[in-house]
Every structure is written in C-alpha cells, then in structure tokens.
Design a protein around this nucleic acid. Structure first.
Lengths: 122, 122
DNA sequence: CCTTGACTTCGAGTGCGCTCGAACTCGTAG
DNA sequence: CTACGAGTTCGAGCGCACTCGAAGTCAAGG
C-alpha cells in the first residue's frame, strides 16, 4: 500500500503520515525502487491505536516514548504498560472533570430554561 | 481587589488575566487613579465559569461569543443557552469517546498483564 | 514521446492559548 | 529622598500539532 491509500484508509493526510514518520511516531517505512513508501495493513492497526491515544488526549511526546519502546520490541512491555496505566488514570480524571462540567452546564441551562418559562408566562 | 490578588484567588496569572481582558473574555476592568485594575468578587465567579468551559474543551472563540452576549445583557439568553446546549452535546460525545478509549486501554493493559503473568510462571 | 498524477524532500507557515520581558509609573515604608 | 514591590502597556516568543507549497522524480496510459 502506498501513502495515498494509507491516507485514505487511516483518515490521516499523506502530509501527516510523513510528519509522523519524521518525528518517529510511525516506523521508517520501506521504500520501493523509486523511493515511495510501501505499507502493509498492520500499519492501519498502529495508526488506529495512535488515534485512540490522541483522542484520549495523550501528548505526542508520550506517544513517542511508547512508540520508541515498541520499536525496541521485547523486554519493554512493563514500561509500555506503565505508560498506558498512567494515561488511563489521566483519562479517568478527565472524565470526572467533564462530568462535573456537565452538571454545571445542566444547572446553567436549566436556569435559562426557567427564564424562558417565566417570559412565556408574562 | 487588584490584579495580583485576583490572580492568586483565581489561579490565573496576572499576565493571563490581562490577556483575557485584551481579547474580550473578561470585561474591561475599572481602573483607579493610577490605571490599576480594580475587581470585585463577582469576577471570580465568572473566571471560575470560564475555567469550566475551558476544562470542558470549549475553544476561546466560543467563549468569546458567550462573553459578548453576556456583556450585551438581557435579550441574549436564548442565544447563550444555545451555545451551552451545543457545547453540552460536544462534551457528552467526548465523554463517550474517552470511555471507548478506556475500554481499549483496559484490554491492552490486561494483555500486558497476561504477559507478565506468563513470565512469572516461567 | 509526452502528459498526468501520485509520489519525494525540505523548510516555512498556521492557529491556538498563553507566556514573557522590557521599559515605564505609582504609592508606601524606612 | 529613595528604594521597593506591584502595577501598567506593548509586542515578541513559545510549544504543540499539524499543514502547506515549491520543486523535483517516476511509472503507466494514450
């Protein structure tokens, strides 16, 4: 698979894929005789996982640590796991924050609703 | 209250408070004879609410729309309410995304746990 | 042979949300 | 009187995560 197809299938732009390779988030891809990157389907899995981490708010520098350990392969599992566990805690905290915000918004919106109600009643 | 105290009590830096005023997120503050800003406690409430919106991931441009309507006062309630309702939906969607990420992470972490288990057993 | 279009590298530019520093003015305490 | 600390304005700089454009290469189709 060339970069264009990977882009289409992953939802990233080709520019972004090259950028991710440049910074080390994606492994350096094999090139064909005319220097074009050639990917196999497993890259989609990795990109999808990166997308999860991104959605989860993980900064790129942490993804880089994870990606680097992944490149090193066996023997790095404990450290990789540690990164994920730490990030899971951050997400949980963030979800709790968001839920607190939802409460505040519900209250505020209910307040506006009351006003509307009173206006109607006039 | 001068800017330093507001900074201490709100958790923002004085630099950030001035920046927020500059862009219109905080109302233009009254100045004393020597051009120093003078705040009353109600500003803390507003800043705290802005903090909620920020935690909730609202971009500054949307906070600005809300702040502008608030400045205009009465008659803007419906529009303000609309902004909050829309943002509440975005937060809900985001929470759902995060929960999906948590599931993926739990699975991944459990996988690493298994490996650790197997290693122990060797 | 020639065009087309997808690829290559490289470096510069963008948008967001601050963050900082320089140079200045005040009001109060010693 | 003077030194200090807290304030002022202004504009520049920063970190993040892309995003884009220029200039070039290459393989396949008409």
């Amino acid at each position: 698979m060339k970069i264009g197809e990977l882009a289409r299938r992953s939802g990233l732009s080709a520019h972004t894929i090259r950028y991710y390779e440049r910074i080390g988030l994606l492994p350096y891809a094999d090139r064909d005789r005319s220097s074009q990157r050639n990917y196999d389907a497993s890259m989609l899995i990795w990109i999808e996982f990166l997308g999860r981490l991104k959605t989860a708010g993980m900064p790129i520098r942490d993804m880089l640590r994870y990606a680097a350990l992944r490149e090193r392969g066996a023997g790095t599992e404990a450290e990789r796991c540690e990164i994920l566990v730490q990030h899971r805690e951050r997400i949980r905290a963030h979800v709790a924050d968001l839920q607190a915000c939802l409460l505040v918004l519900d209250t505020k919106i209910a307040g506006y609703g009351d006003q509307k109600q009173r206006t109607k009643e006039l």
